[in-house]
Amino acid sequence: MVLVIGGLAAGKREYVKNTFGYSDADMADAVLDGRPVLYNLQDLTAKTDKSEEELLPLLLQKDVVICNETGNGIVPVDKAERIARELTGRLCIQLAAHAEKVVRVVCGIPQVLKES
């Protein structure tokens, strides 16, 4: 599994398409289905009723998981947003620990944080 993180509109999906050869049809927008790439993990955590433990194995089946970095701001006033942000961060830590590769995309430029 490859984890790709970065800010909003940083070029994460373009990087995944260009590097791994996936097309838009391979990419699921915050839904868990049979497609090999999931993006907008932060939106999935905002609407899911599944726990971290339930989501992790499902996400680890993906070839690529793409997630916006959501923890780098002021703590949200809204409790549901805080919980989703926490879940997003915790999942990303777990995914990064299991991933063979972790990439942070900045201005479209990939920065490899981990490669095994």
């Binding site: 923890g71 961060g89 990303c92």
Partner: peptide, 8 residues
């Protein structure tokens, strides 16, 4: 240094 829930 790190964001919320970054593992810092």
């Amino acid at each position: 240094y790190g964001g919320a829930a970054s593992g810092k």
